Simulated assay, not measured.
Amino acid sequence: MGAARLLVELGVDPAEPILVEARELIWSAWREDGRFRLAPTGAIYPCQTAHAACTLAHLGCGGDPRLAVTFQHLLATQFDGGGWRCNKFSYGRGPESEFANPGPTLIALDAFRFTDRANSSPELDRAVEFLLRHWVTRVPLGPCHYGIGTLFLQVEYPFAGYNLFYWLHVLSHYDRVASDPRFAEALAVLEADLVDGQIVPERVNRELSGLQFCKRGQPSALGTERYREILANVAGRLPT
């Protein structure tokens, strides 16, 4: 699914045969209750459904009636505090594992931004607030221990995991962050790493490291476009 989103990021038309096939493959894993079974056996985790929904939304399926069922399922299964959480404790149990997982929550919000629910749903407001609170606490949260530390703060492009640049881009589509000092503080951290106003990746997937559009230590034109989208989304509304 990450490969399909990457192709869209690079400007490949979702109507291209390879992406149509990818889309249909993902749909083949859809269940009538809205979840996606991405593996032949084992439990179905919220993160799997969120990733599938996000990819399909990027492929132009945000208005598909099947995805509407998935979005309703996600809203109905929000965990306490506003995020989404799996009952899989790969790292053991502790106080931090009683919270939702910030990573899948960010993915879910990325999917929801393609719908008309983005700025009209109290449930999504709660999810946004959950991530804004995490910016302040920074401690590892959820059974998968998503924290905010050195790796999170490094500029990562293209978008993949739970990191600052992706966090800012997704949240900028939600109106309530535009006047929030926590968002403004996070944006200032990203902007401190700009070079001549351009995004310069610090972390890159090893398999993509040879590609010019995301070369480590070199300005990225596509990454800079995403940064400018953040600014356009919150233009004139950030606290000073």
Rank of each mutant, 00 (worst) to 15 (best):
L151M: 09
C86Y: 00
Y146L: 04
L153I: 09
E96T: 07
A4I: 04
G142P: 02
V8Q: 01
H73W: 15
R216F: 05
Q48A: 13
A4L: 14
V195K: 12
Y45M: 10
P46G: 06
L124C: 09
V8D: 00
A3F: 04
A111H: 02
D116Y: 08
S121N: 10
V139C: 07
E202Y: 07
D193S: 15
L222F: 00
R133W: 10
F159G: 03
R117C: 11
L59K: 04
A53Y: 02
A57M: 04
P104E: 11
T115Q: 10
F159T: 02
A76T: 14
Y166A: 07
V136I: 15
D116R: 13
G81K: 10
T115G: 09
V128N: 05
A52P: 01
N233V: 12
N87H: 12
H134V: 14
D193E: 13
L190I: 14
L75W: 14
L19T: 05
T55M: 02
R206G: 00
E156K: 14
E123I: 03
K215T: 03
E191I: 13
D116G: 04
I44F: 06
A188I: 09
Q48C: 06
I107T: 12
R237F: 14
L231H: 09
Y157W: 14
E129S: 02
G149W: 13
H51V: 14
L171G: 06
A160Y: 01
Q78V: 12
N233K: 13
C54R: 03
W30V: 06
S179H: 10
G34D: 04
G217I: 10
H169P: 00
D80Q: 08
I26E: 01
L171I: 02
Q212M: 01
T70N: 06
N163P: 03
A127K: 04
R31C: 14
H73V: 03
I230L: 15
A184R: 15
P14W: 01
R133D: 14
R113I: 11
P181V: 14
A15H: 03
F183P: 01
